[in-house]
Design a protein around this nucleic acid. Structure first.
Lengths: 213, 213
DNA sequence: AGTGCTACTGACATTAGTGTAAGTAGATGG
DNA sequence: CCATCTACTTACACTAATGTCAGTAGCACT
């Protein structure tokens, strides 16, 4: 039986005609982005292959190209998407320890640290991440106001900036290297080590808020 | 004139016979690893392409395969090489601020943070980095001894572990995200911001060493 | 000098990955 | 109910990357 490549695949042969589903563009893009992010955070930088991604979603790979133009376009959309999500996740205020836990969830379990790291690594030539959010500034200002309100007389604005910077860098490093750090510190498989560390850090930060240097 | 593909490329046509150089295997491997590391830290994860690497070195790409068996073999060798180098760089003791500066140089300027991040990202399935060094443990023990020696009565061993962990995570994060953090904090292009931050952190750590909680 | 070992090379096979062309079919508005 | 728009598909073209093969040549040893 000769194949008729471009015709519809002979309806009488296929048991289930498998009615094709057609999503609105925004919805399709969203699903593709989510799947790409999952692949990236779970399996690393080399895991975003159009065909694999398409297979995950049960679609064909040109569909992805249809929505994003090119692989590069997908990557850019993914970066914008991830940065927006990260910013939204981080800018909800709460008390110190709870904030650290939330940041840890966002950065660690949800894979935003891996995503961010990958973005930084694959960015060639120092071109800045477009539309850089000014999260840290916002946070630092909030911290500074709190310190003043708490009667911390000698609080310098730069101290607050540095505190926030320390937390950001440390939580990012902890999210990426956590298991390695635990191992390297000799606490082989103590899953609570990371949480105790965050609690310890929260206390340290609260001391900083109060201390009158 | 018919080509004679497999013969030597017709000596009378080549102006300079360009005498071939032959290195001892260890030396050749070392050069290849160094070039691979340079590419990785400068241009990101996708930059280790055998042909490009070979061109950098003025050799042919099968030479790399000859020495490392496969691209994967090269990657593994690169990881071992980098971890050994990192450990050697970090385990030389000195005073707090100087240590931070040295760690920053190693992690930042020399690109070990990028390398480490890439190793973590591309590691599939949580397989541990083989031969994990116990750097942090060693450092934490040193810190703890110093605290006791300085008369810090209530020093708990875990506090030292956490201090070291904080520094490790923070310096790693700072090395990778430094410019982004500066930007995000509103200090656009102040190149000394990162150094002032490290000095601030060094003072904080020294306070921790002395504080009697 | 000759011989053996192996670092190294050019040419090629293979595969995998991005992107294109052309056509199919689901939804929506008239 | 028809026309149009576009999400989506299959088949294919092209490129680039890893890896193989057979052969070349530098270097050490006798």
């Amino acid at each position: 039986m000769p194949a008729r490549p471009l015709d519809r695949p002979s309806p009488e042969a296929k048991p289930a005609p498998e009615r094709r589903r057609r999503l609105p563009a925004a919805e399709a893009k969203g699903r593709i982005l989510a799947a790409a992010q999952k692949r990236l955070t779970e399996s690393g930088p080399d895991a975003i292959r159009l065909k694999d991604l398409a297979r995950d979603l049960g679609i064909s790979h040109p569909t992805i190209l249809h929505h994003f133009g090119s692989r590069e376009g997908l990557i850019e959309a993914l970066e914008r998407h991830a940065m927006a999500q990260l910013e939204a996740d981080l800018l909800r205020p709460s008390d110190t320890e709870e904030t650290l836990e939330r940041v840890h969830r966002t950065l660690g379990d949800e894979g935003h640290a891996r995503l961010l790291a990958w973005m930084v690594l694959s960015r060639r030539e120092r071109e800045p991440l477009e539309a850089e959010p000014t999260m840290l500034r916002t946070l630092a200002e909030a911290v500074h106001r709190e310190r003043l309100a708490a009667g911390h007389a000698s609080a310098a604005p730069e101290d607050s900036v540095f505190s926030v910077r320390l937390v950001a860098a440390a939580m990012f490093g902890e999210a990426l290297l956590g298991p390695i750090l635990s191992w390297s510190a000799g606490l082989q498989d103590d899953p609570s080590a990371s949480r105790r560390f965050r609690a310890w850090l929260a206390r340290l930060l609260e001391d900083l808020d109060r201390a009158d240097a």
